[in-house]
Amino acid sequence: MKRLTLHRLASALLCLTLALSLTACGGKKKPAPAAGNGGVKETISDSRTDQTGQADPVKPSEPEAEVDPKLVEECLDKLGFDLEYGGYPGAAAYLGCREKEDTSKLSDWMLENCLDLITEMPVMLTIPSEQVLGPGYGKLFCVIPLGENTSLAVNHITWQSQGNGLHPVADEVLYREECAQPVLVFVDPEEPDMEVNLVADDGTVVNWYP
Rank of each mutant, 00 (worst) to 15 (best):
T158I: 06
P135S: 07
K30R: 15
N113L: 04
G134Y: 05
N149D: 10
V206F: 00
D116F: 08
V169Y: 12
P210K: 00
L20I: 10
E42H: 15
M121D: 07
G96A: 04
M121S: 09
M110I: 10
E112P: 03
N149F: 05
G138K: 00
A32V: 15
R3Q: 13
G36T: 09
D56L: 15
P31T: 11
T49Y: 14
P57D: 07
V199D: 00
R8T: 08
A153I: 03
N149H: 06
V196I: 12
W159G: 08
E178S: 11
R8V: 08
P89M: 02
W208A: 08
L76M: 03
K139D: 15
G38K: 07
A170G: 09
Y88W: 07
L4F: 09
D188I: 06
Q181T: 08
Q131W: 06
E62N: 03
L9M: 13
Y94H: 07
P182G: 08
G86Q: 03
M124Y: 04
G87L: 03
Q51N: 13
P69D: 02
E191M: 14
T5W: 10
M121E: 07
Q181I: 13
G27N: 11
D102Y: 06
L174K: 05
H7K: 09
V143M: 04
D50C: 13
